[in-house]
Amino acid sequence: MDTLRRWWDRNWLQVALIGLVISTAWVARQTQGGSLFEVYQLLTRPFQSNPSKQELLTNAKVVEMEAKLQQVEKENQKLRELLGYVAKNQQQAIAAPIVGRGADHWWQQITLGRGSNDGIKEDFVVTAPGGLVGRVSSVTAHTSRVMLISDPSSRVGVMINRSRFMGVMRGKSGNKAVMQFFERVPDVRRGDVVTTSSASELFPSGLPVGRVESVNLSQSPAPEAVIALSAPTSVLEWVAVYPVEKNTDSETSQANSK
């Protein structure tokens, strides 16, 4: 007993500090490193680029194509209205700079310099020039963490745009992903454009994802295609964050079931 007390007299500070360190680390874990990312955002703010620079980079061709696309979209909307579709209210995108990459290489994550103070919430959809980037997985006041669609644990419902064959896409590190088809013999070719499918609950339908790079129809249990993702995540500096809108298809089916 006496030795224990003498040991305690000598080492109480060490024990207390170890306890403090472990519990602080535990808090950091439970809060998803929230305070760390807040400090990180504060420190990196002077080095973040501003959007005007990015605008300079968009070349004239993109501007021209965007104008054409707008025309087509407008036409499309008018036709939909004629058919009696209810126009979806377009929600404003939140522009956010990418301030950090993944803190480990097993996960494909990025950190954005905007958080709940700017209106970002969990599960918001993140897009960039080129298409879908990922989904917001956690938010602090001024930062948010995005799980990229190239993360091996991400699952996105996708569709071959040309033939409307559907499947599930899971990430493969790098700028690649693997699409697994639902059908045994899908109509798919190299170069086909892949978009999010209307059956996806987490992402709005019709967002461009990438292009088919190679097809393996003999793969078991289901045919697979390797997809090159179109958003160049490794060189991006800014992304757009959208609130999640439930797919109109799934909403109407829910309404019908009620």
Partner: peptide, 21 residues
């Protein structure tokens, strides 16, 4: 071991809880 535990918890918070660092 204690240092590994503490820093592992921090890195878990910064990435994903499972699997653990």
């Amino acid at each position: 071991a204690i240092a590994g535990l503490a820093l592992g918890l921090i890195q878990d918070g910064m990435t994903s809880l499972h699997p653990s660092h």
